[in-house]
Nucleic acid binder design. Structure first.
Length: 475
RNA sequence: GUCCCCGUCGUCUAGAGGCCUAGGACUCCGGCUUUUCAAGCCGGCAACACGGGUUCGAAUCCCGUCGGGGAUACCA
């Protein structure tokens, strides 16, 4: 049997992080078993579904590297088929029209709750003669669900879960306007799409019981269910839009790499021994439902960030360069000079080891592409006090005439210079760093000098020396 | 209210009766290294929710309590 999984989001917003993980698990499972991973857009709620949301979901999935098989199914387009199934259920005596008014239903719910009974529709039209139907009221179609006994679910994650049928009322299959409800649509579509494994959030666990009853009513084979625990926010509450339930694109904008998010999300709620960092290929070969935990997990930015730092260090230099160009343009508030790109390419290795996100990478890279004179931060300014400037002018004289402008030669020269003055290398390195990068932290300073080149380096050093001395901090 | 699910360091988790004086990762705190900052290496703090059983022996099995979450729509 070929495994077929699906991800079935409703296009009412972006691809939020919980949905992304659900999609990921379905994708991993299908790929692991060499099966198919399908997409179905559940757009039957016409009022809330938008084309923008559909695009955002596709984009998010693509960005995460989750490719799907076949054309996505749009659920609304299958409404006629859903209604046909409902009619078939009526013909089989497994569904019936119900003429209850919304007011009646509310009253039923309130009374049931007050009496401590399970809330829900009491089945009053279940066996009533349709001749008694009130004039001019369009009925809904309800499932004639079993009233006694219990429905048992064999869940791949939650194990065997049992619920008394008395808890489940006769759910609506077709609305008064003839459109299908979610409960009917999912079952029909999952069946027609030959879905073998339904992997979804455990907020659907109770739906699975009702859906099981529809499968039975139609005599269809019931797929395997795997209800995975939801992701919670840092405060332990449900991850909602109020907390961290951001869309995949928000994480992209914050500067996370898709492979880092994929690794993080895979590890959230799933484990393979003590493995923390693994490739997508490894994840595919290791992934199985058995490794999925039963308790909800909280979303932890710090760990995602740490993972991202790892993947940043591993990432291809040219790729990172391209990724940060738009960010650099925004930070610089201008287009980049021609020499900026080759300079950036040479600088990435030194830069990426010091950044945790693309946002940080761009910030740290900015000094390389800024035009002279560059601005200095407060700590850099402090390095360029009278002492610092004296050190600087001495070393500028030393560096200016040289021809071998490589980091090793430059370091040798600086070391020799420091030694004659009886200073540690750090003493001369910091003023150089301040003048060249505008900050007190940067990649190795002689590497910076080599990448900047002799002209730019000397220019920046002169800029620093030409500056008016910083006002005395003590004053 | 009713039903269902969950409960190991702050967080993610390993653990499927003795291998557990509970392991790893992230965070945090020290140290080493060092031209700064990272990285790396070494070390440290830190958990089996609680109470009863079962057993020679329980984080692991059972029951209860408490806590958290989810579902209870002519939404999906």
């Amino acid at each position: 049997m070929t495994v077929v999984t699906r991800f079935a989001p409703s296009p009412t917003g972006f691809l939020h992080i919980g949905g992304a993980r659900t999609a990921l698990f379905n994708w991993l499972f299908a790929r692991h078993y060499g099966g198919r991973f399908l997409l179905r857009i559940e757009d039957t709620d016409r009022a809330r579904s938008t084309r923008e949301a559909v695009d955002a979901i596709f984009d998010g999935l693509r960005w995460l590297g989750l490719d799907w098989d076949e054309e996505p199914v749009f659920q609304f387009s299958r409404a006629a088929r859903h209604a046909e199934v409902a009619r078939e259920m009526i013909a089989r005596g497994r569904a019936y029209p119900c003429y209850c008014s919304p007011e009646e239903l509310t009253r039923m719910r309130e009374e049931a709750r007050r009496d401590g009974r399970p809330a829900g529709y009491d089945g009053r039209w279940r066996d009533r003669d349709p001749a008694e139907a009130p004039e001019g009221v369009a009925p809904v179609v309800r499932l004639k669900a079993p009233r006694d006994g219990e429905t048992i679910l064999q869940d791949l994650v939650q194990g065997e879960v049992t619920v008394a049928n008395a808890q489940l009322d006769d759910m609506i299959l077709l609305r008064a306007d003839g459109t299908p409800t979610y409960m009917l649509s999912v079952v029909v579509d999952d069946h027609d799409m030959d879905i073998t494994h339904i992997i979804r959030g455990d907020d659907h666990l109770t739906n699975a019981f009702r859906q099981t009853q529809i499968y039975r009513a139609m005599g269809w084979e019931i797929p395997h269910f795997a209800h995975i625990p939801l992701i919670h926010g840092p405060d332990g509450a449900k991850l909602s839009k109020r907390h961290g339930a951001l869309g995949a694109e928000a994480y992209r904008d914050m500067g996370f790499l898709p492979e880092a998010l994929r690794n993080y999300l895979t590890r959230l709620g799933w484990g393979h021994g003590d493995d923390e960092i693994f490739s997508t290929e490894q994840a595919v070969s290791w992934f199985d439902i058995g490794g999925v935990g039963r308790s909800p997990a909280r979303f932890d930015m710090a760990k995602l960030t740490s993972l991202n730092a790892h993947y940043l260090r591993e990432a291809d230099d040219a790729r990172l360069g391209e990724l940060i160009v738009p960010r650099l343009r925004a930070l610089a508030g201008a287009n980049l000079d021609e020499e900026a790109l080759p300079r950036l390419r040479a600088a990435i290795p030194g830069l990426k080891a010091r950044a945790r996100t693309l946002a940080e990478l761009a910030e740290n890279a900015l000094f390389y592409v800024l035009r002279r004179p560059i601005s200095l931060d407060d700590k850099a300014l402090q390095q360029l006090d009278a002492d610092g400037r004296a050190l600087l002018s001495a070393i500028v004289a030393e560096l200016a005439p040289r021809t071998g402008w490589t980091k090793d030669a430059l370091e040798d020269a600086a070391r020799a210079h420091a030694e004659t003055k009886g200073l540690k290398l750090g003493k001369v390195a910091q003023p150089l760093r301040a003048a060249l990068t505008g900050s007190t932290t940067s990649p190795p300073i002689f590497e910076v000098m080599e990448i900047l080149g002799a002209d730019e380096t000397l220019g920046r050093l002169r800029d620093a020396l030409d500056r008016k001395p910083a006002p005395d901090n003590a004053a």
